[in-house]
Design a protein around this nucleic acid. Structure first.
Length: 900
RNA sequence: GGGCGCUUAGCUCAGCUGGUUUAGAGCACCUGCCUUACAAGCAGGGGGUCGGCGGUUCGAAUCCGUCAGCGCCCACCA
């Protein structure tokens, strides 16, 4: 009857259909008269490998884009990759090191050659992996943040913002990554709580005459055995004392009044430094004495500026001690901490060491490297202007965030925004288009900012005194731009909107519709895209932002290589099929929460595929008899399922509009498994080897078609595979473009009637189950009193009845149950167990009485009757009447049973 | 220190502006079934009083307050 295997085999169909879609350019989009629907992919690192976060994120995007196609939109999903400067450069440096090559031995050009080689070697693997998932991106548009167009756009934007006065160069305390040896933005620093130590160091008073008394009331003066006085400073970073140029106390601190105007000696270093006073110092913390190291702490830097302190930079770029320091030159900062702690102790200059928990900043890209505050010249973008552009549209929901809870976070960040350090001391990236003019030692650096060498030269020659400067004399800035300085242009640059403003593509596709991304890049990327969008297009870059959760394991732990709890997505696809994995992702992804991923969910997805597959096998195997009349139960089932389908279509639509995609999937899942397979198909299914009538077959295939369309965004492969068997189609056609039916009204009465019929069927099955009555053994259903349900033929078929008969009083040896207010009974002859029946009915009676008591309590409350809406009171009265009737029925049944 | 969010069956979550029979779903669990679409399955079943306390109300899982626990984001206390 059927040549399809009894199990669905994803491997046999996935590659075939993906190739089919590619061969027929079905993911391709060009502007036309249809309404556009656009998504730009959050570009993964070009040399990255697919992980579970990508799986989730891209599954959602694919679902949205496929659904948009079904809705008749011109759907475009643009793919691409990100050059990820720090991460990629780090990988290249590491690889070179393995070959015995040091970056510092290479020229910029040589290094970049290696980097491009690496990129071409590993680049785009991740995009290949996305195809396995079924991602329907328009691959002909694949972009790279460092390809020609995107690079040109970045430079144009830099020049433009410089010309607008929004970019400046300055000496600032920045976050320095000593491993990558580059500056970082504030956002690239991750603070982690750490168990460290608080070291209490002795700073002796210089030229102490030893005459000072113990001090005034409230003063705390330390003395050693010789009577020499010293101050105690608490610090977590004793290795920076070589850079100390002052000690600071709060002028109002009673403990330390005696130190005012004194000078103290830096331990080991023996440098004499002044005691300064500043209200910045917290009297309560430690001893109230703060060591001031202006070059190695942002706050100390501020103090240094205010109090005109000397700056001693004791660290090199790689975190080793510089020759500015009198001690430990060349030693690594972390090593120094250990050594100096010992040396201080041995010298008797350590008062004590305490355990202390504090937060230490780490580089986001080199997570094992503590960030070092460092004073250096960098490029910055003024952010106030951009914050003012980007805040209102989100706060007033022109751009909607899903879930909404990220709005305050966004607001808070923009309110307190600081200038963005955009320069990186890296080669892999967009080279900063600034050109320095020759300058004498000590003279202030002068530069021009221009798109290319020629323009730079022309600009330079306009500067008085430089009319005859040559290209060779101009020095191109060696630094690259922060990666995010290109990513923030993504929704514009993908359509060449920077280089070629107002072109047809940008006009058609921009603003894009939905952005799907993880919340951890809300500042790095989302906020900045909004800024660039308004600056360069005057419009939002996207209408909705859907923040996915972080993918965790089922115990709620973050996925990590160390824990080994991060499954390989491709292995999962191999095991469960792409559709199964997609479903597994979505089943675990409630909107707005972290997702707890469990392989069992992929298994559930695979099982569902199998369910669909087998339902299809069933229908596919039916023979049609054109002359056969349609049975009543089939006609009724079709009417019911049509209504159920309409209701679910509306429900799914609503859920999608709210980005409740998991719930939408669950609605379709239940519709297919419960309503369609367990009920509808069981009703219309002909007896073994019997044909089905033509009308029922037509309706069933039509339902199947619509169900496949509804499922397609979630499970593109199996739906395409089965769809081809349902209808004749031309080469190049695809379920991907098969529209969903328009909204249709739902007849609630039909649904209610079937619900009642279903309850009756379940009750009879329950009796069968309890009494061990074989499915084939027909039973009779008695109805006590008057009752009517149009779906009686369905009940007869599904409950395996030979008849439904109305009776005045039920058979005394029957198993009884109540649905609604009507009592039903299945005569059992000798099988009845009177005791059990009594117990069962008694339980129901107790429940009904309790229920009634509740209702009557309400109705007895005059204020309820007076104040509650009429409708609510009416409902309560109906409940009361129903309960009374049910109780009467039960009491009568019990009485009869007990007499028998 | 500031801000946000969460706490409903064993697990993961719905339950929107308070009242559609004394709370729903999926999974898990229990019982019985290899009933020719599917054991990756079928049928049936048990299970929560909605974190604690107090308040508003005729009526609260749903609103307010408070306490407890959990989580996230931001912030220069060395």
């Amino acid at each position: 009857m059927n040549n399809l295997a009894s199990k669905y085999d994803p491997k046999a169909v996935e590659e075939k259909w993906y190739q089919y879609w590619l061969d027929h350019d079905l993911f391709k989009s060009v502007p036309d008269e249809r309404e556009p629907y656009t998504i730009v992919i959050p570009p993964p690192n070009v040399t990255g490998v697919l992980h579970m976060g990508h799986m989730l994120n891209n599954t959602i995007q694919d679902i949205l884009i496929r659904r948009a196609r079904q809705k008749g939109k011109n759907a475009l999903w643009v793919p691409g990759t990100d050059h990820a400067s720090i991460a990629t450069e780090a990988k290249v440096v590491k690889r070179l090191a393995e070959q015995g090559i040091k970056k510092s031995d290479l020229t910029r050009e040589e290094f970049l050659k290696h980097a491009w080689d690496w990129t071409h070697e590993h680049g785009g693997i991740i995009l290949q992996q996305l195809r396995k998932l079924g991602a329907s991106c328009d691959w002909s548009r694949t972009a790279f943040t460092m390809d020609e167009k995107r690079s040109e756009g970045v430079l144009r934007v830099f020049v433009d913002l410089y010309d607008k006065g929004l970019i400046y160069r300055g000496l600032r305390m920045v976050n320095w990554d000593p491993k990558a040896q580059t500056a970082l933005s504030n956002e690239e620093v991750i603070y982690r709580e750490e168990n460290s130590k608080l070291y209490y160091l002795k700073y002796y008073v210089a030229d102490d005459d030893l005459t000072g008394e113990t001090g005034q009331e409230g003063e705390i003066v330390h003395r050693d055995e010789q009577g020499r006085r010293y101050a105690v400073v608490a610090t977590t970073r004793p290795e920076t004392i070589m850079g100390d140029t002052a000690m600071c106390i709060n002028p109002k601190d009673p403990k330390n009044q005696w130190l005012r105007g004194k000078k103290v000696i830096v331990p080991l270093v023996n440098r004499v430094i002044p005691v300064i006073e500043d209200r910045y110092v917290d009297i309560e913390f430690g001893t109230g004495c703060l060591k001031v190291t202006p070059c190695h702490d942002p706050n100390d830097y501020m103090l240094g500026k205010t109090h005109n302190l000397e700056n001693i930079d004791i660290f090199n770029a790689d975190g080793t001690v510089s020759d500015q320091s009198p001690l430990y030159v060349g030693m690594d900062r972390m090593e120094v901490r250990k050594v100096i702690s010992r040396d201080l102790t041995e010298a008797g200059l350590m008062e004590k060491v305490e355990d202390y928990v504090n937060k230490v900043g780490y580089s986001e890209r080199n997570s094992d490297t503590a960030v070092e505050p460092r004073l250096c010249m960098q490029w910055f973008l003024k952010m106030r202007h951009f914050a003012d552009l980007a805040l209102p549209p989100v706060m007033n929901d022109e751009i909607k965030f899903f879930p909404q809870k990220y709005k305050p976070t966004y607001h808070n960040w923009l309110e307190n925004i600081q200038d963005w350090c955009i320069s990186r001391q890296l080669w892999w990236g967009h080279r900063i288009p600034a050109y320095f003019l020759p300058a004498a030692e000590g003279e202030e650096e002068r530069y021009v900012v221009a798109l290319n060498d020629e323009e730079a030269l022309a600009k330079a020659r306009q500067i008085p005194g430089f009319e005859h400067i040559t290209a060779e004399e101009l020095r191109h800035d060696n630094d690259a731009l922060d990666t995010w300085f290109s990513s923030w242009l993504w929704p514009i640059s993908l359509f060449d909107g920077i280089n070629n403003p107002g072109n047809d593509e940008i006009k058609y596709y921009y603003p894009t519709n939905d952005l799907v991304t993880a919340p951890d890049i809300i500042f790095f990327w989302v906020a900045r895209m909004i800024m660039a969008g308004y600056e360069y297009e005057g419009k939002m870059p996207f209408r909705n932002v859907y923040f996915t959760g972080i993918v965790r394991d089922k115990l709620g732990r973050k996925m990590s290589k160390q824990l080994g709890n991060s499954p390989d997505p491709l292995m999962l696809i191999d095991k469960f099929g792409a559709d199964g994995v997609r479903m597994g992702m979505m089943l675990s992804a409630p909107a707005g929460n972290d997702i707890l991923f469990d392989e069992a969910l992929c298994e559930q997805g695979r099982n569902f595929n199998n369910k669909i597959w087998n339902a299809f096998r069933l229908v596919n195997g039916w023979d049609v008899d054109e002359n056969l009349a349609q049975p009543d139960h089939s006609r009724l089932a079709i009417d019911w399922f049509q209504n159920k389908l309409n209701a679910t279509l509306a429900e799914v639509d609503d859920l999608f509009n709210k980005f409740r995609i998991s719930e939408a999937l669950m609605a379709v899942y239940r519709l297919f498994w419960e309503d369609f397979s367990a009920w509808y198909l069981e009703i219309v299914k002909p007896a073994y080897q019997q044909p089905v009538d033509a009308a029922t077959m037509r309706a069933t295939k039509r339902f199947f078609d619509i169900l496949l369309r509804m499922l397609h965004p979630f499970m593109p492969f199996i739906t395409e595979e089965l769809w081809q068997h349902l209808a004749e189609r031309a080469d190049g056609e695809s379920i991907m473009y098969a529209p969903l039916p328009a909204e249709q009204p739902v007849d609630e009465a039909v649904l209610a009637s079937m619900a009642e019929a279903g309850a009756i069927v379940s009750n009879v099955r329950n009796v069968r189950s309890a009494k061990n009555i074989a499915p084939r053994e027909a039973v009779t259903l008695q109805v006590v009193g008057t009752w009517a349900n149009a779906n009686a033929p369905i009940i007869v078929k599904l409950a395996g009845l030979n008849d439904i008969v109305a009776v005045e009083a039920k058979d005394p040896t029957a198993a009884a149950f109540i649905v609604g207010t009507t009592e039903f009974a299945v005569p059992l002859a000798d099988k009845v167990n009177v005791e059990e029946e009594i117990a069962k009915l008694q339980k129901e009676l107790d429940y009904a009485r309790g229920f009634l008591a509740n209702v009557e309590k309400k109705l007895a409350n005059e204020r309820f009757v007076a104040n509650a809406p009429q409708a609510v009171v009416a409902i309560e009265r109906k409940k009361q009447a129903d309960a009374l009737s049910k109780i009467a029925t039960l009491e009568e049944s019990l009485k009869a049973l007990k007499q028998s």
